[in-house]
Amino acid sequence: MSELMNNLLFGIAYLILAPVVGGLLAGCDRIITARMQRRVGPPLLQPFYDVLKLTEKQEIAVNLIQDFYVGGFLLFVMISGIFFFTRGDILLVVFTLTLASVCLIVAAYSSNSPYSQIGAERELIQTMSYEPMLLMVAIGFYLATGTFSLSEIMHGHAAGIIFLPGVFLGLVYILGIKFRKSPFDLAMSHHAHQELIKGTVTEFSGKTLAMVEVAHWYENIFLLGFVYLFFVWSAGWSILLGLLACAVVFFFEILVDNCCSRIKWQALLKSTWLVSLVAGFINLLILMYMR
């Protein structure tokens, strides 16, 4: 009974704290990026100010149905996160996340602007690129620990990274796509200096765009949770190791963002499938032989 209470508490903590922590992470991201570029950077709480300002802006939408779909996006991201943090089933978490990105794609298609149409097509290609890898993460944990259940994975007898180094490398590769960072920020970039203006979210404004921002904070926290999963096992101090790994991966993503330009969709598809095949699939084959 107490484990159920424990899981529920984690779920509620995620719901309430994830946007706060996600926003602070986004603020750190901007300050670190600025310092790397020899600038000063905005205040730490700037993402919160931006979201608050967005909620006060007038909303101009061509097709109001996009609000419904963006709401669906936010809802499914929150649900995936809740499933993850209440130690549910990892496969279910991956599929709910896919549902969230489909909602975003339909939202982008629903407005008739050519920028968001092309952005939605690119978003579809991106989803095709990273889905195999995410599934391989779930399957890899099943092969390594014999279960899809997150609570048993987190209390396993050894850290996931020992059995799944290739899968971990593949995950870090595709995290750039999910974090919307160079070289993979084709469909939607943090900066509007790309040929699609802001890509998928070009036509969103006001509260809708604020919802997208908050959904991204939820998503970032829960993706870092995936990284955390590789570094925890039944030992109590492994929690610190997991958090350290999250910090290192986050900093690495910022570094790669500042060191690369954006690539085209053909290169994205090829390179992601190649990495998934080489790093992920071979790791899984080795695990299957070892069983």
């Binding site: 990026t33 790397m36 570029q37 020899r38 600038r39 160079s182 070289p183 920020d185 970039s189 900066h191 200096h193 790309q194 500042n258 060191c259 690369c260 330009s261 954006r262």
Partner: peptide, 16 residues
């Protein structure tokens, strides 16, 4: 050019 490619840090350094 760097900015158009999505390489903001190179843009900032060139202008520096």
């Amino acid at each position: 050019m760097a900015d158009g490619m999505g390489f903001e840090s190179l843009f900032m350094h060139s202008w520096r």
